[in-house]
Every structure is written in structure tokens, then in C-alpha cells.
Simulated assay, not measured.
Amino acid sequence: MARIEVSGLTKHFGGVTAVDDVSFAVEPGSVTGFLGPNGAGKTTTLRMLLALVRPDGGGATIGGIEYADLAAPLEAVGAALESTGFHPGRTGLDHLRAYTAAAALPSSRAAAVLDLVGLGHARGRRVGGYSLGMRQRLALATALLGDPAALILDEPANGLDPQGIVWLRRFLTEYADAGRSVLVSSHVLTEMQQLVDRVIIVHRGRLVQQATLAELADAHGDLETAFFNLATEQEPRP
């Protein structure tokens, strides 16, 4: 099990505060939605959590350990923050084998995770010929290589067709049901309504709500209404 814990994360870019003292936790066995409008600080928070950006304050741990100190990071946490950055001339299988070699994982994991995400039929195709939805699946396959205890995904449904979205929803739910932690950042509220157990909402770099989906429903009726009500409360008054 790997509890994700963020404590007081803060990041400034010049005179702009992108993330302002944000704290939250993602519990094992749950799918948690990380929501907020564009520019709310979601991606910067995730990048600090994964040691891709140095925070100006606060910290974050996965299973009680900072990402940079993890002995086997791919086994602790799998992350997919974008579906770009693939070498277009490599096949999907070759892309994943490069990662298994670098992480000292069995090369057999490459074919196994391709089958797991429904790309087994395209393992020999060059990534340059993949659709956006296929690249999303390949990014997820990369995150799954170490069979991690936690998953961190940024807009994982982007580019997926309706059948793919249903598949992703089922996959992530089952992954969490096995006692793992899943953190999903998205702006597609209708999809999050059907996927998540808990919700973290940020706006203008600050945490505005952390609650279960049921608690938000009791207070606001549905996730979309809750999101807009809470965001409106944070807007400066004229």
C-alpha cells in the first residue's frame, strides 16, 4: 500500500504563486479526483509530487517516502502526466522495453502491460502511427510497468473513444479495489462523477475542498454543481 500525502506544497514562478500551501492525502483503496480549472496549479502540484519541479515550500511523500528517495520508484508509483514524448520511430513494444531495461525490470513486462491496456495488437506498430487514444494507453502501460502501489494520471481519458473511457473507468476502479492508491487529474467533471470516490478541488493555486463524492452530493447535489459553487466562492468580489 502507498498512501500519497501532500503537505503545504508551495511554488512560485517569478511573481506568480502557482501553488499556495496545498495539503491533501490519497488513501489506498480509493480513486481520488484532482480537479480545478486551467491554471489552478494541478499539474505543478503533480510535478512537485514526482520530483520534477522543486517546491519552494512543503513536501510530498508516497508511502511515507519522498519520490527522490524511493529505492524502486516504478514499483512504488506509476505516473502518466502526458501522452507525448514517445520516439515516433519506435514500436510500442520497443518503447516499453527501453524502460524495463533502464529500471532492471523483466523485459516480459513490456508485452504484459501492452496486453493489459489493450494494445497487444499494436505492439509492432511504430508509435508515430498511433492515434491520441493509443498514445494515452501507451502512457498508462508505461506507468504500469513496475506494478506500482500508486498511480498518478493527468487527463488519462483525453483522446479515448467512449468504449475506451468505459474500459479506463473499470480498470482504475479495479486497480484501487486491490488496495492501491489512484490520483486522477481531470477537468471532465461528468467522467469524474462516475469514476472517483473522493475529490480534491483546487482553485487559483489553493485547496478549496477535500471530500468524498457522497459528501459533495449531500451538500451540492452533484460534482459539477459543487465544482462551480466552490470555484465561485474563491473569485474576488467586485
Rank of each mutant, 00 (worst) to 15 (best):
A111F: 00
E155M: 09
G33F: 07
D197Q: 08
S7P: 00
T142Q: 01
L50T: 15
A101M: 06
A18T: 01
R135F: 00
L9I: 14
R109L: 11
A157I: 03
V53P: 01
V202F: 08
A226G: 08
P106G: 10
A80E: 02
V208K: 05
V16M: 03
G205C: 02
I201S: 10
A110D: 04
A104Y: 10
Q163Y: 05
V208H: 05
T173S: 13
G128P: 09
D115I: 01
L35F: 06
G58D: 11
V113K: 05
G59S: 15
R206S: 12
P55T: 13
N229E: 10
H12Y: 07
L105V: 14
G15R: 14
D218P: 05
G129N: 06
I152S: 13
R169H: 14
T225Y: 01
Q193K: 10
D222W: 09
L74K: 14
V188W: 00
L160K: 15
G14A: 03
G129Y: 00
L207C: 09
G164V: 11
E233D: 10
R237T: 12
G63A: 04
R54K: 15
V31R: 07
T45H: 13
E233A: 15
R198G: 06
P88S: 07
T142W: 04
A110K: 07
N158W: 01
T32F: 12
L151C: 05
P37V: 05
T17Y: 05
G29N: 02
G92I: 04
